[in-house]
C-alpha cells in the first residue's frame, strides 16, 4: 500500500489553454489540499508516479510528451485532465492539433470538463491511485513510446 499513500505527480502542460493547469495547481493549494492524500507536485519525471496531462497534443509538443512519459519509472499511471486532453475538445479540428493524449501515450483515467473542477480532478487522481496499485501488484509495465528521429534531442 505504500505507493498509493504517497504518490508524486508530474504536471505536463501539453498545448493547454491554462484553464485546466490552474485548476490542477489549485488542487494542491490549501482549500482543496490534495497533499492530505500524500500527493506532491514534483518537477522531475524521474521521481513521479502519476502523470497529469492537460491539453491536446500538437505537432511540436508531441515529442516532449513522449519523452516525459518514457522517463517516468514503472509502475506509472497517466491521467488526462479536461476535454482537450481526453478528446481534443473544441480544438480537435484545428490544423495543428493531433487530438487527445490517448492517441500518443496510453491513458488510464480521464477527467472530463472544460475546465474540470478541482473536486473532479482530485476524484480522478484517487481513481488513478487504485489503478497504480493494481499495476504494481500485476507487475504491469508501460510500453516505451518510440520517438521520431533527431527532434528528440532538441526538444528534450
Amino acid at each position: 500500500m505504500s505507493l498509493a499513500k504517497s504518490p508524486w505527480i508530474i504536471h505536463v502542460n501539453c498545448n493547454s489553454c491554462n484553464g485546466c493547469d490552474i485548476e490542477v495547481v489549485a488542487c494542491l493549494t490549501p482549500l482543496y489540499d490534495a497533499e492530505r492524500f500524500g500527493l506532491l507536485n514534483i518537477g522531475t519525471p524521474k521521481q513521479a508516479d502519476i502523470m497529469v496531462v492537460t491539453g491536446s497534443v500538437n505537432y511540436k509538443s508531441v515529442n516532449v510528451l513522449k519523452n516525459i512519459y518514457n522517463q517516468i519509472p514503472d509502475p506509472k499511471v497517466v491521467l488526462a485532465v479536461g476535454a482537450c486532453a481526453s478528446t481534443g475538445g473544441i480544438f480537435h479540428d484545428c490544423y495543428n492539433v493531433i487530438g487527445g493524449v490517448d492517441q500518443i501515450i496510453p491513458v488510464d483515467a480521464y477527467v472530463p470538463g472544460c475546465c474540470p473542477k478541482p473536486e473532479a480532478i482530485i476524484d480522478g487522481v484517487v481513481a488513478a491511485l487504485s489503478i497504480l496499485e493494481n499495476k504494481k501488484k500485476g507487475n504491469i509495465r508501460g510500453k516505451e513510446v518510440k520517438l521520431k528521429g533527431k527532434e528528440v534531442a532538441s526538444n528534450a
Binding site: 498545448n15 500538437n58 480544438f91 484545428c94 492539433v97
Partner: peptide
C-alpha cells in the same frame, strides 16, 4: 510553438457567435 493550436485559422469554419467561445 508548443501551445500553438491555430485558432485564427480555425475560426474560418465557425460563425461569429461561436468564435466568441
Amino acid at each position: 510553438g508548443y501551445v500553438h493550436r491555430g485558432l485564427e485559422k480555425f475560426i474560418d469554419t465557425k460563425d461569429y457567435n461561436q468564435t466568441l467561445y
